[in-house]
Simulated assay, not measured.
Amino acid sequence: MCAMRLSERQPEIRPDELVESLVPPPRFDDVRLATYLPNEDEPSQRAAVTACAEFITEVNSDSKAKPRWRRLFGGAGNGETGVSGRYFDGGFGVGKTHLLASIWHAVEGPKAYATFVELTHLVGALGFNTAVERLRAHRLLAIDEFELDDPGDTMLVTRLLSELMNAGVRIAATSNTLPDKLGEGRFAAEDFLREIHALSARFAVVRVDGPDYRHRGLAPAPEPLDDAALRESAASKADSTLDDFDELCTALQSLHPSRYGRLLDGVSVVHLSQVRPASDQNVALRLVSFADRLYDRAIPVLVSGQPVSELFGAEMLSGGYRKKYLRAVSRLAALARDGAVIS
């Protein structure tokens, strides 16, 4: 059996597919508030579940009572300037995406779910006014992995959220803070509220504290295979892929990150040969987006070369994108353990 190569794929997403594809990723198809298991040592997690349930009730009750013309043509002129959004603030691996997807599943449609990157791509592909028009009739927009490191994108999304909230759309969003520094999460929440300035009073912050559940009591990422064992594994598994790490990095450069999910359609296992630390920041950030889409789809990963835990060097882990890299390592290590089980 000959394994497929991701680096040879050229996935496409038509503009009219973009809004229709705004749903939680496959990993979160079946999550609900009832399936979230709060860490008993972290009271904020149980409080977050309660906050989610209250928000769901608010959204469903409000959207039922609101006449269609107010949802379509906006409610700002009618004094609708109260708290209508929720921002889930906490470290990676505490279940924020589980909570966000649970809200989405429980809210009656129309509704949309997107990562921050997918949302900026939607605006770029459709144009700002068309994107607003397509989303303003929704009851809920859920945004995962809200990013603050690109001022242009942050301003664009803030403007979009303003238009949508004025039209009566409820917003729920998550992002990451570092779990290893006392109090740092508070500052991240303040950063979020500062960057969305005019909208800050319309968001309530929900804290979700705790350690990364993906690694509680678990071993670190497994040791890499040798190249021969990697090729043998790829050849023996249906719908698996096998790529040279550098060639995959080059291929990712030619694709917008919003297409990385489509790149992985139909893939059961990803094999990467000769993995090594990312060569520069641009490559590293593309690998973060790729790792997120792998994790969304629960695709096991097997590698040769260096372990996935060494994908980002010390200099990158001490820089401004530290939390993104740590999240990617956390997710890739979990997928590598899945890969070790089936190898």
Score class of each variant (00 low, 15 high):
S7T: 07
R9V: 04
E12Q: 14
R14N: 05
L18T: 04
V31N: 04
R32C: 09
P38L: 12
N39T: 02
E42H: 03
E42P: 04
P43S: 05
Q45N: 04
T50V: 11
F55Y: 15
F55M: 11
I56D: 04
T57R: 15
S63Y: 02
K64T: 12
R70L: 15
F73I: 03
G79W: 10
G82V: 10
G85V: 06
G91A: 13
G93R: 02
G95N: 07
K96L: 00
T97C: 12
L100V: 07
V107S: 02
E108L: 09
P110Y: 13
A112M: 05
F116M: 12
V123A: 10
L140N: 06
L141R: 05
G152F: 02
G152W: 00
T154M: 09
T154P: 02
S162H: 13
M165R: 13
M165D: 06
T177D: 15
G183T: 07
E184F: 14
R186P: 00
F187M: 11
A188K: 13
A189R: 06
F192A: 14
L193N: 05
S200K: 13
P211K: 08
D212C: 08
D212V: 09
P220C: 06
A229M: 07
L230T: 09
R231S: 08
R231Y: 02
S236Y: 00
A238C: 01
T241K: 07
D244G: 15
T250P: 00
L252P: 02
S254A: 15
Y260E: 00
L263W: 05
G266M: 06
H271F: 04
L272Q: 01
Q274M: 06
V275S: 01
Q281D: 08
F290C: 00
A298D: 15
A298T: 10
S304G: 13
G313C: 07
K324D: 10
K324I: 00
S343H: 14
